[in-house]
Write a protein that binds this DNA or RNA. Sequence first.
DNA 1: GTCTATACGGGGATAGAC
DNA 2: GTCTATCCCCGTATAGAC
Lengths: 179, 179
Amino acid sequence: MSARDTLLDAYGAILLENGQRATTLSAVAARAGVSKGGLLYHFTSKDALTEGLIDRLDELMAEDITAMRAAPDGPSRYYVRTSVWTDCALDRTLVAVAQLAQESHTGAQEVMDRARRQWLELIRKEVSEEATAHAILLIGDGLYFDAALSGNPGSSREDAITAAELLPVVDRLLAGAQD
Amino acid sequence: MSARDTLLDAYGAILLENGQRATTLSAVAARAGVSKGGLLYHFTSKDALTEGLIDRLDELMAEDITAMRAAPDGPSRYYVRTSVWTDCALDRTLVAVAQLAQESHTGAQEVMDRARRQWLELIRKEVSEEATAHAILLIGDGLYFDAALSGNPGSSREDAITAAELLPVVDRLLAGAQD
DNA sequence: GTCTATACGGGGATAGAC
DNA sequence: GTCTATCCCCGTATAGAC
């Protein structure tokens, strides 16, 4: 794995677990196993580091949209299924960048906006009724919100909802919107 | 309005609009129209300031739970209705404290957890089916997530969903869970 | 490609005047 | 009750050795 990727992993992990304030250059460097100077060789500034993470999210989102479009059980079910926390690269990067977006980082806000628009577009193809499509999108948002709040989403709470429990509800929403 | 309340308003507003990193003592003091020293007379440290905001959320939540319990259209509809951004004190404080929770602030995480548990408990009284109750809770979470992401939720986007559009979907969920 | 040393600014907090 | 002045620490970034 490239040094750049290792550093982005460390940055994302700290962002996810302890929030923006904890993402000092020394903390990121230490977690990646290099010194501050070493970090600044690969990313010339902290801004460059955040741009790197945003670019990574853009790539992961492109993959996700492709998979969602091809999902055998349909985009809505795919979307809700994959919004439940699975600790995958997209989950982690998305919640990390969401933190940046909340700190008014324009680039982060734009990529989050783009992500939600792309998801909604695919859900709409399956669910003609506008409000239902939005409700499904909101359920996914809610799942990410929970993950973001918990700080350490890996240690899922005992009362966390599972995809298996949630999908029948999505099915009912889909069926109800068909009339 | 007391000086304390004015300062908490300023702190919450900056947290909401620009994120934790922007909430320096000088910025909060300036927004409240006092000096740094003036602020530190009312709140002896930055921690005291955040505790103040968390206490405020606790009070607002108690009011909200009372109103939700007495809502004529039922707790679920009340919950979704009021989760749509209305720029009220609870909305603003909740999203502000959510930011603190994401920065691993224990007190903030606890009050957010408490809030979600209380909401879920009341929704459960109306919706016996567990997954549906969770789905309704998640729709509210999603609405708060959107508000948090936008940075300045006051300036609602044109594509934002309204309560009027969302409530029929909630009704269908309630009806579907009755069988 | 990675390190140490250092410069510089900003944020939190105290002391004390008014 | 609110202000200014000041201190110290820490975070970002640069310079230059290895």
